[in-house]
């Protein structure tokens, strides 16, 4: 009756008989989503393999954030199927939680918990979801904090850190859950220019270690160096997807060319 957290996946996806490829970690078929009457996602098909790094770009309002938020069910979809690591997204709460455990997410606004220390931010989910011992969780958290290079801030509160540091903590917080996939929702858009690099460096490092990543970003340099595939979205649909070299040097669609012209030449 009283439910503050909107559980958006209460709508059961229409049953579709599609064979899911075993090799793809994320498998999205025929995904459609409406905000009221507005058709935000149109017939999206997208498969992401284990270890693949995919960058999604596109003008604002093209539905790219909505798409990745559908994957861990922060947004409900009306048609189509989403399968993550063999688990199909349904309206079942346990099901949603299973998927969320496997999918890490980093937000544009960091969304660190201001009432908890950095360390507590990182150990919250391992303790309460993974049911790890506190000592154990703290040990793991410190390892990840070292990898994002802020172990000395562990006992401070988020408000005492810079934006770049906060975002690195947010990445560490997700990694502590040992996810199969990491979703990045414009992770550098809210940062001052001088802090973007420190966050991107952490993401590049993560990519090198073989993490499966799906990343919404405007950082085209990052896309070029890290991505296996770049996807361009506009008006709620996937217009073009290609390896970065091909995508940047030889875009096929006129829209993509326009967009790249705007992003690269500013």
């Amino acid at each position: 009756m009283i439910d503050y957290l909107d559980e958006p996946c209460l709508q059961k996806p229409l049953s579709q008989t599609l064979e899911q490829k075993a090799s793809s970690l994320i498998d999205i078929r025929g995904l459609n989503k409406w905000y009221g009457q507005f058709h935000v996602l149109r017939d999206i098909d997208l498969q992401i393999h284990k270890g693949e790094k995919v960058v999604i770009c596109g003008p604002s309002g093209s539905g790219k954030s909505t798409l990745i938020r559908c994957i861990n069910c922060l947004e409900e979809h009306q048609q189509g199927s989403i399968v993550v690591d063999g688990t199909r997204l349904t309206n079942d709460l346990d099901n949603i939680e299973t998927i969320r455990r496997e999918v890490g997410m980093v937000f544009q606004q960091f969304n660190l918990f201001p009432h908890l220390t950095i360390l507590e931010n990182c150990t919250l989910a391992p303790i309460w979801v993974r049911k790890q011992a506190k000592k154990e969780a703290e040990k793991v958290a410190m390892e990840y904090l070292e990898r994002v290079q802020i172990p000395d801030q562990a006992h401070k509160y988020p408000g005492q850190l810079s934006g770049g540091q906060q975002q690195r903590v947010a990445i560490a917080r997700s990694l502590c859950m040992n996810p199969e996939v990491m979703l990045f929702d414009e992770p550098t858009s809210a940062l001052d220019p001088e802090m973007i690099k420190e966050v991107l460096d952490v993401m590049i490092e993560l990519a090198r270690e073989g993490m499966t990543m799906l990343c919404v970003t405007h950082e085209m340099g990052f896309a070029r160096t890290v991505a296996d595939r770049v996807i361009f979205m506009d008006e709620g649909q996937i217009i073009e997807q290609a390896p970065p070299a091909e995508f940047f040097d030889n875009p096929r669609s006129e829209r993509t060319r326009q967009f790249l012209g705007q992003v690269l030449n500013h």
Binding site: N32, Q37, H39, R42, D43, Q78, Q79, E254, R255
Partner: peptide, 12 residues
């Protein structure tokens, strides 16, 4: 992969 856009439809 073309400039053929999918038109907006009414929600189900």
């Amino acid at each position: 992969m073309s400039d053929q856009m999918i038109p907006a439809r009414k929600p189900p």
